[in-house]
Design a protein around this nucleic acid. Sequence first.
DNA 1: TGACAATTCAAACGATTGTTTTAAATATAT
DNA 2: ATATATTTAAAACAATCGTTTGAATTGTCA
Lengths: 223, 223
Amino acid sequence: MVEPFNNPAAAESGPTREHLLEAAGEVFGEVGFRAATVRAICQRAGANVAAVNYHFGDKEALYSAVLQQSCRVALAAYPVDAGLPADAPPEARLRAFVRAFLQRIFSDGPAARHGRLMAQEMIEPTAALDHLVREDIRPMAQRLAAIVSALVPPGTDEASLRRCSMSVVSQILFYHHCRPVVSRLFPDLEFHGEKLDQLAEHITRFSLAALRHWPAPAEPPAA
Amino acid sequence: MVEPFNNPAAAESGPTREHLLEAAGEVFGEVGFRAATVRAICQRAGANVAAVNYHFGDKEALYSAVLQQSCRVALAAYPVDAGLPADAPPEARLRAFVRAFLQRIFSDGPAARHGRLMAQEMIEPTAALDHLVREDIRPMAQRLAAIVSALVPPGTDEASLRRCSMSVVSQILFYHHCRPVVSRLFPDLEFHGEKLDQLAEHITRFSLAALRHWPAPAEPPAA
DNA sequence: TGACAATTCAAACGATTGTTTTAAATATAT
DNA sequence: ATATATTTAAAACAATCGTTTGAATTGTCA
């Protein structure tokens, strides 16, 4: 056996594999999948150039492993409900959702990598995205939908509900996805500490104002 | 003279240069700056491999030219105010702004390229972004700020105003920037014709509901 | 037409990419 | 300790990249 990368049991072996995952997370997050070179990753990991192919098969398999691990790390660091009971008022749950999401994206630690990786995945989707949407993003979207559903008038149709959910997340993701433009337009903006909390508060208030005053569903046309 | 690319007067010479701009717009829009190869561009333009360096100097200069031209094309195809008088009611101006922005991004024609190029510029900003922010994005941001300013209560502070503007554009850009995830979550969503108008209407209503009731009373944070 | 500039072309250059090879080093088990 | 399997290491591979070169071609004006 000279290629342990397809051995599921060996997936937790050796420190080199861990170092590669760590280094690859940094490099991929900094320059993206395509611009990242296995040589740069291996150098940062203190490993040989052949280490990636030996431990993971090829560059893309390493990237896939990085993406899934970074998602786990980010969600573990900043849980969706931030320790809030499921029966808390929807306003509080929305506020917690927005805050945790922003922190997950703008944190300094390794949790921030996931945000950068996802942003790059939006430009050049890889096969790893399907797995991620199925396992992590869809459940999160359903959680938000539940919160939004408790805020809009009862009987709001499904399509409006989905669009309202997206109006909420869009405000969160915007500052991250469009950071190059945002920081050029407003160089004084910051995205950590108290400033991040203020941003979360703004998004929450804006969304609450819209959702609370969302027009009641129109009368369905008689069939 | 064997390098006409730095001759401003020669910038409008020959059909090859135009073909290169056209082909480069397509290729850059499809795969991004880094993944695009000058060979692919030249092949699509029916030109020699050396044509890019001859007419533009290097690959990045060609990209810069493409980015600026695509911005002009997109703004010409879908103007910001959509032929609306400046003294129209702010609600109508917001609706026109949102609609034109969405159409600019999701159009099928060459105007759509600009959206894709900008999305990639968010991931890997090039030197061309500074010029673009200065010349096109900032004026557009100020137009939106004027509309928003007419909708929120007078005396709203500058920071809130900026954040509200961003809450509006964020909803527009979201569907474009996160399309890989959105279309995996909701495969039935479409972004053209009537569906696009409905989306514009949603974003307008959501934003109007929020802005008209700004500032919304914040829920006291859960203890 | 003839001279000169502008443009195109095939070919190659130098650098970098992901990956493979082959052998040496290390760990593990008998 | 010996044999076996696992892991590391240096070197090279084949492919592709942006760019350059120098000659051939085309266009232009006297």
